[in-house]
Nucleic acid binder design. Structure first.
Length: 761
DNA sequence: TGGGGGCACCTTTTT
DNA sequence: GGTGCCCCCA
């Protein structure tokens, strides 16, 4: 948070208030209803951010509160930043001094650092990233001697996360829930985990809120202080709050009873991480006398896009229901396009983008929104091939990359010698001969003497328990650390980082690596040092990276946006592509499996969010075949395609699937009738079932004067057919056994059992 | 101790 | 297709 001086109210008052101009009556009401709780139900594209930021500006401009008396929380750093900028633009300078505008987690961390002692922490506690969390859990699972395969650390982590989202401490976990892990040991492991965190002076993400709630509940004087402090509370994306966030807000809002929340139940897409749509549905009960304001006038999309989106979301049963309207143009109908496979999908999108671009429209007006990040790769490859500039938003996270985490671990260890997680991470990276056996010895010694790993390592070196290369490696590491700690006192932290990476041999390790990624990793390390320079101290930098997942990249370049649907929330684009609308992909099979009807509704909201990002034009695509985990599968169009009202959506490619002439994957039968085969793959069965139901299906492709049964692995092949496999080359089918093929490969001279195969050129 | 080969499992979305 | 894990050998 900024430390800039708080502006004088008189300065703010002088700012002219033309900011109210151009607001519609509902928005204006949302800005000017300042005497009690307000619930703003704001549909997509109805100007809710504008209403919210204007409200904040209005409070300041009318001198109702000092900037430091306003608590404004968002979910993402991006949203917080945007709010700050927009308030600044509305009323001029002074917003730097909004110290309590931030994400739930950053504000939570801010409060917790001040009150850490109340929950048994020191104020310089470390915020763990998910990687550290998993290591810790793994250790705990191991220590409890559980079957690590059956009860994975990942599983435990997600359970504990869920419990924390619900604001449950280990004592609150109901017995039934506890049985979700290791036959009833769930709560026990949760308790051990919390003890470990506390010993290490660490918190995880969930703690930032959960411990806040504890502080406020258990210390009336502290709560009272914040009651007096926060005269106005503003909350963005209220439909995404989880129970812990809700309790936190409710505690804080008891003081002024002046809380304004904005949200849209139709855009609740974070149920999987604990969001409770109920929070928004219940708001009027929680805050009696609340004013409810509905923003239903959409300023963003054309009539057809809005109509298609509204028609789709109307299928959902659990919703408050809104009627969005626009008096803008009807525009074009939403275009639905069937393609053969993922590659054709990427080709189709790329050429449509070129077409758009050739008409003088900007690339930065175009977004490709996918359900899951693995879908991005096909687009990236195609864009690269065609030279279409693009940016991937929320791709592999900078601060979560291995090399960045390793570098952080070194720095954490320089700063705090007893950071065991950091020690463990880098003790043998780069390799210095300290293997598992040595690490285990150190850990045992540490446990016996109740000290940190690095202290125990120091002690062990005075005995002869560790010998050979391990001894030398450990010795030089400890000496280096001491040396760096000395240097830290006088050096700038970014220079120190460079020194550490150099002298530890870490940079050298990647320089010696000749693989393609190593170069990128070195560049990332350089970028890291550059980024560190932007912060005043190592502490400030580390706090930033713990709470922010992205490196700020302010690219105003003319580039196509490529991102997930989740990442696209809050954004808008003239042209939006929505690929992968196929059953199992979107709606995601996993979501359906895990959450049934509720999961499906959330998927549908995601589709709604996607469509409503578009201003002028939306194109939906679905493929007939898709490669998932490297396996080809026949897939059916998403049910969402059928739910689009036909008066607002149209199937654009008359040929449906297979419009492209480029061959993809195929089983070519050399001789005989391909349909005589007994090979029945799951995909082939789905294909037949779809045909029986009269659904559109992939065509049977003809080529080279012969019938190719189908253009994917789900072709039917006969014994004796010559087939081609991407990895093993050409071979001959020896035997067909249910869904498996036994193939004799020419190059390797080996027989192989396959359940996925074959490709022609 | 470390590296290579074989193998199971897998991936939604994120502060 | 990619990764992480286990086992075996130098």
């Amino acid at each position: 948070m900024s430390t800039a001086a708080t502006p004088k109210l008189s300065e703010l008052a002088r700012a002219a208030p033309p900011y109210l101009d151009g607001l519609n009556p509902e928005q204006r009401k949302a800005v000017e209803t300042l005497d009690g709780p307000v619930l703003m139900l704001a549909g997509a594209g109805t100007g809710k951010t504008r209403a919210l930021t204007t409200r904040l500006a209005h409070i300041l401009a009318t001198q109702r509160a000092y900037p430091s008396q306003i608590l404004a929380v968002t979910f993402t750093n991006k949203a917080a930043r945007e709010m700050r900028e927009r308030v600044g633009a509305l009323i001029g300078a002074g917003v730097e001094g909004l110290p309590w505008l931030g994400t739930f987690h950053s504000v939570g961390a801010q409060i917790l650092r001040k009150r850490a002692e109340l929950v048994g922490l020191e104020s310089n506690f470390t915020i763990l990233d998910t990687d550290d969390q998993l290591r810790l859990m793994k250790q705990i699972v191991q220590a409890e001697e559980l079957d690590e395969k059956r009860w994975t650390a990942r599983h435990l982590a997600s359970l504990i996360d869920r419990w924390k989202n619900r604001a449950w401490t280990p004592d609150d976990v109901p017995e039934g829930e506890s049985y979700a892990f290791a036959d009833g040991k769930g709560a026990h492991l949760y308790r051990i985990y919390q003890q470990r965190l506390s010993t290490l002076n660490c918190v995880d993400f969930g703690d930032l809120l959960l411990l806040n709630v504890r502080v406020l509940r258990e210390n009336p004087d502290v709560l009272d202080e914040y009651h007096r402090k926060f005269r106005y509370i503003l909350v963005d994306e209220y439909q995404d709050t989880n129970t812990a966030q809700y309790l936190w807000l409710r505690l804080l809002a008891q003081g002024s009873n002046n809380i304004c929340v904005v949200g849209d139940d139709d855009q609740s897409i974070y149920g999987w991480r604990g969001a409770e749509v109920d929070n928004i549905l219940r708001f009027e009960k929680d805050f009696p006398g609340a004013t409810v304001i509905r923003l239903e006038r959409n300023y963003r999309s054309t009539g057809h896009i809005l109509g298609a989106a509204s028609g789709l979301i109307a299928t959902n049963k659990t919703r408050l229901g809104k009627t969005l309207w626009t008096d803008g143009e009807e525009g074009e109908k939403v275009e639905v396009r069937g393609v053969w496979d993922g590659e054709e999908e990427a080709r189709a999108v790329a050429s449509a983008i070129e077409n758009w671009n050739s008409k003088g429209r900007k690339l930065t007006d175009v977004a490709v929104l996918v359900r899951a990040s693995w879908q991005m790769r096909a687009f990236e490859e195609r864009f690269l091939q065609m030279g279409i500039p693009h940016k991937v938003v929320g791709g592999p996270r900078f601060y979560e990359r291995q090399e960045i985490r390793d570098a952080h671990a070194y720095l954490r260890l320089v700063r705090a010698p007893d950071d065991d997680l950091a020690f463990e991470r880098i003790v043998n990276t780069p390799k210095r001969g300290v293997g598992d056996t040595s690490v285990r010895k150190i850990a045992e010694a540490a446990r016996r003497a109740n000290m940190s790993l690095s202290a125990a390592a120091g002690l062990l070196l005075e005995t002869d328990e560790i010998k050979g290369p391990a001894r030398a490696g450990l010795k030089s590491l400890l000496a280096d650390l001491e040396n760096w700690r000395g240097a830290a006192a006088t050096m700038r932290h970014d220079e120190l980082a460079e020194k550490v990476l150099d002298e530890s041999g870490y940079s050298a390790m990647w320089k010696a690596d000749k693989s393609a990624q190593a170069q990128g990793r070195l560049e990332n390390l350089k970028e890291l040092i550059r980024a560190m320079g932007e912060y005043g101290s190592l502490e400030a930098y580390l706090e930033h990276v713990a709470l922010v997942t992205e490196l700020d990249q302010v690219t105003s370049d003319d580039e196509v946006w490529l991102m997930t649907l989740h990442a696209a929330k809050g954004l808008e684009f003239p042209l939006v592509f929505l690929p992968g609308w196929e059953e199992t992909v979107f709606p995601s099979q996993r979501s359906l499996d895990e959450n049934g009807a509720a999961g499906l509704e959330e998927e549908r909201r995601l589709a709604y969010v996607g469509l409503t990002r578009a201003r002028e034009r939306a194109v939906i695509l679905f493929a007939a075949n898709r490669q998932i985990y490297g396996r080809w599968q026949s897939v059916l169009p998403s049910r969402f395609v059928d739910e689009l009202p036909s008066e607002h959506a149209t199937v654009a490619s008359a040929t449906g699937y297979g419009a492209s002439a480029e061959p993809t994957f195929a089983a070519v039968t050399e001789a005989g009738d391909p349909f005589r085969s007994t090979y029945e793959s799951p995909g082939w069965k789905r294909f037949q079932a779809a045909q029986a139901k009269g659904l559109r299906t992939p065509p049977v492709i003809e080529g080279d004067g012969r019938v190719i049964a189908s253009e994917n692995q789900d072709a039917r092949v006969t014994v004796g057919a010559r087939v081609f496999h991407q990895k093993f080359g050409y071979g001959q089918v020896l035997q067909v056994d249910g869904a498996k093929l036994i193939v004799d490969f020419e190059h390797t001279g080996r027989k192989k059992v396959l359940d996925s195969f074959v490709e022609t050129h």
